[in-house]
Design a protein around this nucleic acid. Sequence first.
DNA 1: GCATAATATTGTACTGAGTCCAACAATAGA
DNA 2: TCTATTGTTGGACTCAGTACAATATTATGC
Lengths: 209, 209
Amino acid sequence: MIPASQNAVGRPRASSRTVIEDAAAELFLENTYALTTIEQITQRAGVSRNTFFNYFDAKSDVLWVELDAAIDRLALELQAVPRGRPALAEMRAATIRVVSDIGVDRVPLALTQDDVMGTAEETRVSGLARLARRSDLIADFLAGQLYRSPNDLLVLSAANALSGAISAAWTVWARDGIGRRPLAEYMAEAFDVVSAGLETALSRTSLAE
Amino acid sequence: MIPASQNAVGRPRASSRTVIEDAAAELFLENTYALTTIEQITQRAGVSRNTFFNYFDAKSDVLWVELDAAIDRLALELQAVPRGRPALAEMRAATIRVVSDIGVDRVPLALTQDDVMGTAEETRVSGLARLARRSDLIADFLAGQLYRSPNDLLVLSAANALSGAISAAWTVWARDGIGRRPLAEYMAEAFDVVSAGLETALSRTSLAE
DNA sequence: GCATAATATTGTACTGAGTCCAACAATAGA
DNA sequence: TCTATTGTTGGACTCAGTACAATATTATGC
């Protein structure tokens, strides 16, 4: 077994987590996600196979570190919004704030895999789990702002729609390659496409019923 | 090994596919999805484990037979729409037509599992794969009608949003339990929530650029 | 410094999904 | 009846993910 010191020889020893992430990123690019095993990753990282599962619940989690972090930040932003504020405007602002510091070159690992949004169901499906988490988050937020239930058809539709639009922004941004503009711009566009109609639908029902 | 005749003793022998579906449905309800193994399913169905994979690519596929069929029908409906017709109106009609024959009691197997939309990521994620397939479908359709690329941010946002709304309709419909109204009604509501804004956004850009 | 508690890492053994392929059975058609 | 096709099976395999106990590492109090 390769000693852990291989990755950091004098410098302050990198955390296992980082070492694993780096090794995984390398191998995914070399051999694709599907053909890379967790054993290979941990071997290259110089840790045991079990250590992988100390830091990640699933192989696919490594693909989505950036996106997961962005969703975490979105959760915090939304929590900080006082109740009663205009829901969609706050959502829009929070969404854009969250991605505003993501440089044009820092594309999430998952999205650099060209099989992600293509045929490879495996990677795509794990990405959809993030979409679902974000939908839940948004549904809770909207429900809170509109004093409705997160299970409400209207709330859920709006949340899913917004989450879908955000997802589209990420996808197109990643696909646009080198010449891409900042993610925040894509986010704003995608958001506005769907939010125009939501605005009226949501305001109408918050008065009625 | 139990002979296949156990499930159909005189009657015309049911296809392996149906036998497997039924066995799976029973076991999922008895022991939950997660705790049911493919081996148990095929054992009860009276076929070999491999036969399962003759009919399904994954264990989770059994959960989504109805939804997959609905998406297949949607694909056919959309293909039949002549180019140039108003995209959203046709989408709405097709969506509702597709689910109009789904009775209030025929809830997809997946949605009767109460862990589906709850904590159980496993079942939920497989459902999201359907959402993605539907998004692709819709994106292609919209792209065709609007003479744009299916990778266009606008098209993709709209497709994801619509697919998300449809998903919300299914979810709430299933959750509403015994007293639920026909699925088509939920579908219409969810659809209208998001499509109002899309209408303007899509028409605006089909003229511009 | 040292003892101790908390945390990180590892080994081992296991379950179950999904793949591959070759053998075999059933069926339909000529 | 022979034959081509399709459905079914057995067996051996890979790999993700889980469980748990043992050991190493690091932090903390003294």
